[in-house]
Computed example of a mutant assay.
Amino acid sequence: MPLFHSPPKSLCFLRLSAIGDVCHAVAAVQAVQRHWPETKITWIIGKVEAQLLNGLEGVELIIFDKKAGYAGMKAVWQQLKGRRFDALIHMQLALRASLLTVGIKATYKVGFNKQRAKEGQWLFTNKKINDVNSQHVLDSFLSFVEYLGVPKQSPKWTMPIAPSDLDWVNQRIPLQQNVLVISPAASKDERNWVTERYAQVADHASEQGYQVILCGSPSEREIQLGQQISQRMTHPVTNLIGQTSLKQLLALLQRADVVLAPDSGPAHMATTQGTPVIGLYAHSNPKRTGPYLSLNTTVSVYEQCLQQQYGKSSSELPWGTRVKGAELMNQITLDDVIEQFDILTTINKG
């Protein structure tokens, strides 16, 4: 039975981070907006993630600065003082996020099923979604809104991109130019692919007439990675690592014909734009965290890594089992990635 039989007046979503998961959550929020256009929606979100979603139509963003600790929580509670929501949709498992919900008033506080809730999340909610079967994180997020009463539907995204951000991209890429964007860095270095192979794929794309663009954050490790890839290439590359805002990056990913990325936020940002992604996976299951619309072009050695480490397949292990090791991404071959690039670019030409 759905939680609501008529449109609720107000809903509060809580998903603070990370960029990829916030992109998944947008699909759930916008499914609600399409079904219940009159429902007022508030979203409590992290500071960095809010930079990406600023201007999201019909959504009030309340920023939680996790670095501010308890003072950051009090700031959120102060902004919501005197307000009560029909439901709080608690999509974050971290204890810090659960503590933040204590000061938010809602008739229902909806969380993960106890089987999937971690860090005691079930103690902070009075309703649990039924879903324990969804493999992909995005499907589990959509299960929240289905529980509320929104019919099951395929995810769609309308992300806010300003004309100035589109202009920024157009100034850097000729109109008819084919583009491969490589976002080489994952959140941890061990989840990055081999630097030399990034360079070889980039050279291959250049030889097919593609403009190759590197993108990423301004962190020192990402800037160094971009420089190392550039130095190993024999063809020119446009290195924009550390030079884009999140909105400009989103506009760039929209303009790309193909995106190559490990398990990282830009892979999911590209998915919101309908841009094909070649995802590179070894440590986590792409069926759970891969680019949702590009799972068929993802290059994964996850299953073989599981066998090497546990002697079992993903179907025999707990949902979300991760594999550990600094060299696992080496098992992704250059040929496998080039094969996916050639398949996608043949489709694009067609």
Rank of each mutant, 00 (worst) to 15 (best):
L166A: 11
V194G: 01
R191P: 03
I182S: 03
N192D: 14
A185W: 07
V179Q: 04
R191H: 07
V181Q: 07
Q171I: 01
V194F: 06
H204Y: 13
D189Y: 07
P163M: 09
Q177L: 01
E190S: 12
Y198H: 06
E196T: 09
E190P: 00
P174A: 14
Q177G: 00
H204A: 01
V181L: 04
K188W: 15
Q177N: 00
K188Q: 15
N170H: 15
Q171V: 04
V201I: 14
R191V: 04
A186Q: 06
E190W: 07
W168A: 05
K188N: 11
R191K: 15
T195H: 09
T195E: 15
W193G: 09
V169K: 12
D189H: 07
S183A: 15
R191T: 01
S183M: 11
V179I: 12
L175Y: 13
P184F: 12
W168C: 01
R172W: 01
Q200T: 04
I173Y: 08
Q176M: 12
E190M: 12
A202C: 01
A162S: 12
Q200S: 06
W168G: 02
L180W: 07
R197G: 02
V169N: 12
P184E: 10
I173F: 03
A185S: 15
N178R: 15
T195Q: 14
L180K: 07
R172E: 00
T195D: 05
D203Y: 01
V179A: 06
P174G: 07
A186H: 10
D165C: 06
V201H: 06
